[in-house]
Structure formats: C-alpha cells, structure tokens
Simulated scan of single mutants.
Amino acid sequence: MLYHLLYPLHSTYSVFNVFRYITFRTTYAVLTAFLICFLLGPWVIRKLAQLQIGQHIREEGPKGHQKKTGTPTMGGTLIVFSLTVTTLMWSNLSNYYVWILLLVTIGYALIGFADDYLKQVKKQNMGLSPRNKFILQSLLALIVSTLIYICPDFSSTLIFPFLKNFSPDLGFFYIFFASFVIVGTSNAVNLTDGLDGLAIGSTIIVAVAYMIFAYVAGNIKIAEYLQIPYVAGSGEVAIFCGSLIGAGLGFLWFNAYPAEIFMGDVGSLSLGGIIGTVALITKQEILLVIVGGLFVIEALSVIFQVGFFKLTKGKRMFRMAPLHHHFELKGWPEPKVIIRFWIIAIALLLISLSTLKLR
C-alpha cells in the first residue's frame, strides 16, 4: 500500500525513491510487524483470558506442564493479523507471489482457528477430526500448488543442494510434490509447538534463511553469480519473510518461557504452511529439509515412535514424542530444551546458507 502510494512521488520528491528498494521495505516490515504484535499483545492476552479461551493440557503429557492449564491460547491470530497488515503495508501488491502467500496464511489460519474453536470454546477435546483437518489442509495445498505451477516462467524442476547438474523436472506432478511439502511442513511446525517459544523461535530462524534466499533468487545478477534459479518477482517474498520475522519476535515477547500466551493451531498450522510455500516459490524446496531440519526431526520422532510402538507391541523408542518431550522427561529443564533446540536450528540455518556457494 505504501509502495503504491508513496513511490510514485519519487519523481517530485527524491526521498520517496527509497520505497523502490526491497531491503528498505523489508527492514521496516520487520519493525512494523514487531510493533503491532508488541502493542496489541497485552490487549489480546486480556481478551482471550476474559473469554476463557485457555489451553487444555493433556494428562498424559509431562507433569510439569499441568501448571500451564488455562494459559490464553489462539494467540496465532495476533501473528496472522500482524503479518497480513504489514505485508499489505510494505509489499508491492501487484506481485503474484504476495497474494499466494496471503492465501496460504489466511487459509491455514482458518483451518487452525476452526480446530482451536472447537477445542477451546466448544470444549470438544478432539477439535477437527484428524481426517477432516488433513482433507482441508490438502485441498488448500493443492490450490496453492496449482497457482504456483501455472505462474508464468515458474520451473517445475527440483534443485538439489551440492548437486550442480542434477535437476529433475517433475512436470505436472510438481503440484502433488508441492502439496506434500506444504501439508508436511504445516503439520511439522504444529508438532513442534509444545514448549514455550520453541515453535515461534524456530520459525523466526527459518524465516531469516528464506528471506535471504528470496532476495537473492529475485535478483537476476546475484542469482546468476551464485548459480541458483532466478525467480522473477520472488524478491517481494523477502518482505513477507521480514513481516513474519517481526511478527514472530513480537509474539515471542509474550510467548517466551514462562509463556503468557500460546499460538494454538491457528498459529502453528499457518506458520508451517507459509514456510513450505516460501520454500517452493524460492526454488529451495529440497533445502527445506536442512533449513527446517528441526521441524523434520520433531515430525520424524513422532512417526518413529508410533511405528516402533506398533512393531514391538507396546515398546517405545523415546520416553515421549515429539522429541522435545523426551528430553524433558530425561530431566532437562524446559528453557534448556528450548535454547538447545534453537541452537540446532541456527546451526542448520548456517549450513543451509553455505549451500549458496556450494553448488
């Protein structure tokens, strides 16, 4: 909005020429999103408490978590609001990818909202059934994947880090692959959201990586120099990622241990959908396994736990899954688990950025 209102004035007032630069708008998108979350956070927490929308803690979970019962949840609405408003303020709204990302954000947020509403307001412990939730996620992912696939000049090839000459073209099947990435990432982030600040902190780290990837992929000279795919228009995705970072930092202010608010499925499902979609747009979908490695590990720990339990008829691979609960039950204090997992996420971020030169 500001880009369209103020940049045209640069011919008269040269100061407005700064709105041309993605780096400028990304910087202020981070700050704007942070301020919106930071300023609205206390009001949202009070409102959720007044509405008695508090987190229900499962009895089979770690015993130390029972004290969190009643903490206001569905705080993901604050993240989504801040992210959406900031993106509309600072992005070039004629950009195709910006609207795809807003569709993913709002669409997955609505699925998560419906699930949270049934659980927290209607007191239906299951919320949306796993089957219905998966169907809704998959339908939205198929729509988004198709929109990406039909985008002019978008390539359906897969780029593998460290393998310069291996780029298989999936053709039409790219839609199904992309849908798997979006749904898988959405659920992986949802599984990671089990400790105060763990999911949002990890999401911020991943968003930093993809903000950089989006910027370099959208600059034809830098993309050519780094020998990565040039994706016309993907530079604006960096502004969206900046908005996500700012909103995440603002939410983390209140979600840090001990949390005053939880994001709920309305936050975790939408954040995962965003990460998966950004990975597809920037043509770094395979690298997501490294960038979002922490989410992958958390999801795999659940899959392995369930599989091992069935194969051995009752034995467990971990003390509890997802993996962060395993370390809690080993005696690690919650803040130690969170910070160590963030350290792992930062290490994976650095490894992923190194691939820009290792082609």
Score class of each variant (00 low, 15 high):
150 I>C: 03
10 H>M: 12
296 V>Q: 09
13 Y>T: 11
291 V>Y: 12
85 V>Q: 12
281 I>Y: 05
184 G>V: 00
200 I>W: 07
93 L>Y: 11
63 K>V: 15
38 F>V: 06
312 T>R: 02
288 L>I: 12
85 V>P: 02
31 L>E: 10
195 L>C: 06
115 D>L: 03
35 L>K: 04
52 Q>S: 14
19 F>W: 07
317 M>Y: 12
347 A>Q: 07
356 L>S: 09
77 T>H: 06
142 L>F: 15
180 F>M: 15
233 G>L: 08
219 N>D: 15
328 E>T: 06
47 K>L: 13
142 L>W: 08
227 Q>I: 06
268 S>M: 01
4 H>I: 02
152 P>C: 09
1 M>R: 03
285 E>W: 05
17 N>Q: 11
4 H>R: 06
312 T>W: 01
40 L>E: 01
144 V>H: 02
294 L>D: 05
285 E>F: 04
34 F>S: 09
10 H>I: 05
353 L>V: 04
123 K>M: 02
295 F>V: 08
259 A>W: 00
8 P>T: 04
196 D>Y: 04
275 I>S: 08
215 Y>I: 02
104 V>H: 01
200 I>L: 03
300 L>M: 13
23 T>D: 14
163 L>G: 02
288 L>V: 11
41 G>C: 03
210 Y>M: 13
15 V>S: 13
38 F>P: 13
155 S>T: 07
94 S>Y: 13
280 L>M: 08
56 H>D: 15
